[in-house]
Amino acid sequence: MTESVFFYLLSGLVLSSAWSVVRNENLFHAGLSLILCFVGVAGIYMNLDAPFLGAMQVLIYAGAIAVLLLFGFMLTHDLMKARHERNQHLAGILIPVLMALLLVGTILNAQWHASSGQPVNFGVASLARRYMQQDLVAFEMVALLLLASLMGAVVIARKEEGSRE
């Protein structure tokens, strides 16, 4: 009972802050709403008995990525004007509608099994075992992808330095 109350509260928080991200005229406020949205999602994870995932959501999304986003806003010249010059309403409506259709279709078509057993203790150890044993190849592939993007960033940064000299 209380679990679902928390779920609806958190969902309300996530949805309203997400709406604020899209509709807020002030980009900085939109960024702050995005962080609120991430924190709400972390709350949902914790409500679902996955505290590690929640903590990681806070650490990586709210603490690092969104702050980097705000960092970018602060470095942008004439931040407040940039918002009004765009005219992409059609794409802005079309893509979310398609996404929503896809999600609703998936949800309706999926087979939802209600298990009667106790929930397993989903800890860090089981996650680690999963990554290091069962899904090792996929894990390494992701690592490789990250390495490639890192090297790409280094190459781009190097080029700029060379051209300045």
């Binding site: 505290p51 590690f52 903590a55 603490g63 960092f71 602060m74």
Partner: peptide
């Protein structure tokens, strides 16, 4: 908590958010 150290690090990472908010606003 069984995620103790991560909890401290994750929550502390929000400090920077407060500083960015203070700096901008």
């Amino acid at each position: 908590l069984n995620i103790g150290v991560v909890h401290v690090v994750a929550i502390s990472s929000l400090t920077v958010l407060s500083i960015v908010m203070a700096g901008w606003s």
